[in-house]
Structures are given as C-alpha cells and as structure tokens.
Design a protein around this nucleic acid. Sequence first.
DNA 1: TGCAAGTTTGCACAGAGTGCAAGAATGTAA
DNA 2: TTACATTCTTGCACTCTGTGCAAACTTGCA
Lengths: 219, 219
Amino acid sequence: MSLDAGTRGLRERKRLATRRSIERSALALVAERGLDKVTVDEISHRADVSPRTFFNYFASKESALVGDAPELLDEAAVEEYISAGPGESALRGLGPLIARATESDSGEIETQQLRRTLLKQYPELFARRMFAMKTFEEHLVTVVEARLRRDEPALAEDEAALTTKARLITLVVFAVVRHAWTSWNDGDNPRLFGERLLQSFHQLDEIMATGVPLHRATA
Amino acid sequence: MSLDAGTRGLRERKRLATRRSIERSALALVAERGLDKVTVDEISHRADVSPRTFFNYFASKESALVGDAPELLDEAAVEEYISAGPGESALRGLGPLIARATESDSGEIETQQLRRTLLKQYPELFARRMFAMKTFEEHLVTVVEARLRRDEPALAEDEAALTTKARLITLVVFAVVRHAWTSWNDGDNPRLFGERLLQSFHQLDEIMATGVPLHRATA
DNA sequence: TGCAAGTTTGCACAGAGTGCAAGAATGTAA
DNA sequence: TTACATTCTTGCACTCTGTGCAAACTTGCA
C-alpha cells in the first residue's frame, strides 16, 4: 500500500497531489491541443507549480504523460506460478499471472482513460511506455528462469541456455500483452483487460497449433 | 538499387556521402565519450558541416545514431510466402522470409557494427529503433493478412478478426526477431543473423509444444 | 553561358532540461 | 511554543535541441 493517499505525513500527501496535478494538467492540455502544441511552461502553470518544479517530478514532458511502469507482480501469485510444475507450459502460465497484475492499476480512472487515448494517438508515447516496461520485463525474465529451473533440471545446468529460453518466453508474452492491449483499446470485446489478454493467449495457441513441424522435446 | 553510390548525378552522390559522414562522426564520438557527452555541434564539426545542415539530414541526434528502418521485403519472396498454402503455418513461414530480408543490410560494415554495439549499450536508442520499425511492422501485417485470406477463406469474411490474427502473428514474430537479435549480439553462436533467427523460431516451437491444451482448429 | 532547382549556411528564436543557492514548508523533539 | 533539521519549491543563469527564413552557393541542363 505505498500509494495510499490517506496515510503518511502531510509532506507525502502533498507530493502525491502535486504529481497527480501535473499529470492531469499535462494530459488535459495535450488532449485539447496536441502533443507539440503544449509546453512545459503551460503545463506547470495549469498545475500551479513553477516550471522548475515540473522537472523535479518528471524528467521530461513525455514522462508526465505516459505514467509509471506497472507495479511489480503479486508475490503469492509469482510463487504459485514458479511451482506450478512442468504439466503446464511456462509460457501459458504467465497469462493469468499478468492478467491478475493488471487488475490493480493505480491512479485515477479518468487519468488512466485519457492516458490510454493518448498512447493510442501518439506512437512516440507508446514507444516510451514500452521502454518504461524494461524493468518489468527484466523482472519477469528472472521469474521465468526460476520456473524453468524447477521444471527442467537438465536445462538449469546451462545458465546461458536457461536465460535464452526465459528471454524468449518473456518477449513472446510481451508481444501477446501488446496485442491484447491494442485490441482491447480498439473497442474489441470485453470490458476487462484481463479477459482480453486471455483471449490473445488462446489465439496464440491456435496459431501455433497449425502446421506444427514434427520434433520432440529435447533436453 | 536506390542507394547505389556509383550511379545517379553528382548531387545524389554528395548527399549520400554527407549523410554517411554525419553518421560516422556521430557513432565515433558517442563510442568515445558516451551518448550525452556529445553535442550536435561536435558531431557537425567533425563531419565538416554546419549544425544547421545536420538537421537537414537528421531530425535529432538519436536518429543519426540508430539508422534507417530496414528495407522493405523482397517482392518475390513475399509472393512465395503468401501463396505457400495452409500446409505451413503463417507464423513459421515468416522466419525464412525475414531471415532473407536481413541479409541485404545497407551501409558500411564498420558503421553497422558500431551501431549494434551502441544499440546494445543504450536501451533508449534501442527503443527508438523499435519505434522506427513501426512502418515495417505495419507492412508485415498486410502481408500476413494476404496470406491468411488465402489460407482461411472463412476467416477472410470477418475483416476485424482477420486483422487481429495477422497482428498477433506479426507481433510474435517481432518478439522472435528481437530475441534472435540480442542473442546474436551477445556473442551467441552463428555468424549470420539469419541463422540465429531460425534458431529462435525453432525454440519457439519447442516452447509452444509443451503442455499444449486440447483444442481443435475452429473456423 | 545562363537559368532553374537543390543544398548549405548563418542568424534569430522558442523550448527542453540542469545546477545552484535562497527561501518556504514540514517534521520533531524539548 | 520554540528551535533546528529535513525536505520541497522557486528563480536564475546557462547549455543544448530543433526550426523558420533568407542569402549565398553548387549542380543540372539547355
């Protein structure tokens, strides 16, 4: 509960309020006028802080718009995933895990919605967001590694091979997340992102199931 | 043959030379001193052009570093892919197609190598590069759509579903390409990128083949 | 030779982003 | 309440990025 706006001292509450205020101002202005018709000065003015303060909170105009990287995963869910056993594929198991992680999205709803619209509208922002996911991505790789170490003891002896495999799984999962995200944003179907995500995972299964080349699982 | 430096007028040759010179200067300086210890002024000076001219060629310091988006795909190879028939999966078929496309990388070898080093060193640049792939990505989606239209007439009647599927395939393929690229760059195995790419495709098959859920191809 | 079209450059300017130090607000403990 | 430490805000000066414009220069072509 690190973002609980009721707890902690006045300082912390004010800081959060300022941050939110800047975010809101930035999003609103860009929605009104377009990304490059808005200056940091204007954003700061609307948020009632000095331009210098803006840069105390955000490194750039863009980072005020894209928001933070997603929260880390739920400890318990991660444990469950790691010890699920080799019966379920390491890739598919990530579907529910991530779906659950996205339920607990922080911040104000209106802000989130505006952000989504802008991410769709400005690919540059989307790219930035992807970049912000880097840390999350790396974290996920280590989680997958842990899982594989359990499922495939033989593989675990070759550190490099283990990491390579974990990286491939992670990258593919991110591709699926990205697919689900844009599909969901394009008004496709379900209300909850988690549901759409599972759909995309299922679609991937279908795609990979056609024309499977003959080969056996090698150790 | 649009970049053939022997043909065309003096104008065109000079323009290409200047562009290359700026690229080389930028890469060399950043390699020496680090990304943010280098200014456009310095790059321009080393390349013997005015700073203003720098911006006639590149929109930013970064774009001089990351290089152009990859060439479009070979027409013939695309045709072959599209009409390969439903026997081979639309996803796997993209492996050889892209592998072939990467063989014909433009520019000087030394420049390419330096670029790779820097892309590895600076994730921001890598993100930019990914963003530059956007056009290529979109092109690929339409190619996959064409293929699916042939393979699955039933699906072709639902434009939205067709696009959704094509996008998922494309995104996953890009994930595989990214995986192959970094693996290759980390000194892993083969000399040719194309070879490494096929390895990654194969690894994906293995991953997806474990714990396959029961389901049938639905129309 | 001379004109059209394309290229380079300098100049002026707006905006992004940072270091620094003064001053305001908050936390804390007597 | 007071006094003192910590943290936050702000203004200021400065460097760097990126763009519009017009003058000067180069190349293409008849």
